[in-house]
Design a protein around this nucleic acid. Structure first.
Length: 440
DNA sequence: TCATATT
């Protein structure tokens, strides 16, 4: 079987990394390797572990020598096999960035507005076979001055990048083209998130957006080509084209503290400050008044309705004068011991019937705020608000775990339907799916 | 609208 049919892909950079979810935490890399090798050629398995505890996070990477082998593994396993101990079938997909990396996709910027696909093709086809080419256009078909371009191989893309980037001026232009590796999906999301952060619009209150401060933000400097190449195992080598992320750019860091400071000075977000300590409330009634006006008969709820300067992050939560003063983080209360499954890892789950699912949590709430709102009914083991990975914004639902079902019932009785801000909370027992119920 | 996670 002479298989000397060498493709036009010389270098051995065709290996593919797969991400695998729903991997039981007790499995070893060797076990996983053996398992996947039943379906495809696999070079390596790497379990993804918690940075500090080194415990498995329930997922792993699988390295395949080729796209073909990777695809075999995906089609044989994705949603098709459930490993012993897992609650749902394996999730097998290309790892973040793999597709982009395999597409040899370039971003081209600084195009003259009147350049055509054909013009670009003429220039770039000198370095290889163009598989795909598109100029980004607006609503009236007007060029946005940039394009995406896919080559057949990495070497071709690299040749074009190195030859053209910053060196080649197109006819009628006095600035050179910019050629970069296209952003991965992840990088695009990161940029979106950061944009949302810095603009801070759709936040319920805008009084923190001090115009003079914002005028100094490097907002005009958002290069669309701010990408970097993937640096995979033994593939691309050093990428000198990477720009630093926005947060690290000069001027940006310096902006944050003044803004937060301004926030803190507005006061009003800390209801337990004595009135004479809170400088000015800007229309927010004193804490005691807020409490009685808006939270009649709700124990443990003692923040104001509004966040006069509330960014989403965390606001300081001082010691509270509440009678029920359970805190979340320092959860080692010596009294309560049994029944609590402190399973390996992060979020603590309470005994059956003690875990709540909460929907319509106010957008600006984080874990702390959620815990605070629910601490009046018992010992809060954990409180988690889910957050969109891309934008960093709350998904407005989350979980609260108590150490007793009674506490959970109390919370449901009082908090379900309760209007925290805008919508009514939906508070119910968390669905209790798995739990290795072993019917003999 | 129920713990899905990218070394």
């Amino acid at each position: 079987m002479a298989e000397d049919n060498k493709e036009a892909t010389p270098s051995g950079d065709e290996s593919v990394k797969l991400f695998v979810g729903q991997v039981p935490k007790h499995m070893t890399e060797a076990q996983l390797l053996a398992m996947f090798q039943e379906f495809a050629l696999v070079d390596e398995v790497n379990i993804i572990k918690d940075k500090t505890t080194r415990a498995s996070r329930g997922c792993c990477f699988v390295l395949c020598p080729s796209r073909h082998e990777a695809d075999k593994a995906v089609s044989a396993c994705h949603n098709k096999k459930t490993l012993p101990g897992a609650s749902s079938p394996l999730q097998v997909k290309y790892a973040d960035g793999e597709l982009e990396r395999l597409e040899h996709k370039l971003f081209v910027g600084m195009l003259p507005k009147n350049v055509s696909e054909a013009d670009l093709s003429d220039l770039f086809s000198k370095y290889g076979t163009i598989k795909d080419l598109q100029i980004l256009r607006g609503s009236q078909q007007t060029s946005k001055g940039c394009a995406f371009l896919k080559y057949e191989t990495k070497d071709q893309a690299l040749a074009a990048l190195e030859t053209i980037n910053g060196k080649h001026k197109m006819e009628g232009s006095n600035v050179p083209l910019v050629v970069k590796w296209a952003d991965t999906e992840k990088e695009r999301q990161a940029r979106r998130a950061q944009k949302a952060q810095s603009q801070g619009s759709n936040m319920p209150n805008a009084d923190l957006q001090h115009p003079s401060l914002f005028g100094a933000l490097p907002m005009g400097y958002v290069p669309p080509y701010n990408g970097y190449g993937y640096q995979g195992p033994g593939s691309y080598g050093i990428m000198p084209y990477r720009l630093p992320p926005m947060q690290n750019q000069p001027g940006f860091h310096g902006m944050i503290p003044p803004i937060n400071q301004g926030n803190a000075l507005r006061g009003g977000i800390r209801p337990n400050l004595s009135p004479n300590m809170a400088p000015r409330n800007y229309g927010v009634p004193p804490a005691s008044y807020v409490g009685s006006a808006y939270h009649p008969a709700v124990p443990g709820v003692q923040y104001p309705m509004t966040y006069p300067g509330g960014m989403m992050g965390h606001r300081p939560i001082g010691g509270s004068p509440s009678s029920a003063s359970h805190q979340v983080s320092s959860s080692s209360s010596p009294g309560s011991s049994s029944g609590v499954t402190t399973s390996s890892g992060s979020q603590v789950e309470g005994p059956p019937g003690a875990n709540l699912f909460i929907y319509h949590i106010p957008q600006e709430y984080g874990d702390q705020e959620l815990a605070n709102a629910f601490k009046g009914f018992g010992n809060v083991l954990s409180a988690k608000v889910f957050v969109d990975k891309a934008t960093g914004f709350s998904k407005c639902f989350g979980f609260v775990s108590y150490d007793s079902p009674a506490a959970a019932q109390g919370a449901i009785a009082v908090m379900n339907g309760y209007q925290l801000s805008g919508k009514k909370l939906k508070v119910q027992l968390k669905r209790d799916n798995n739990k290795q119920s072993k019917p003999y």
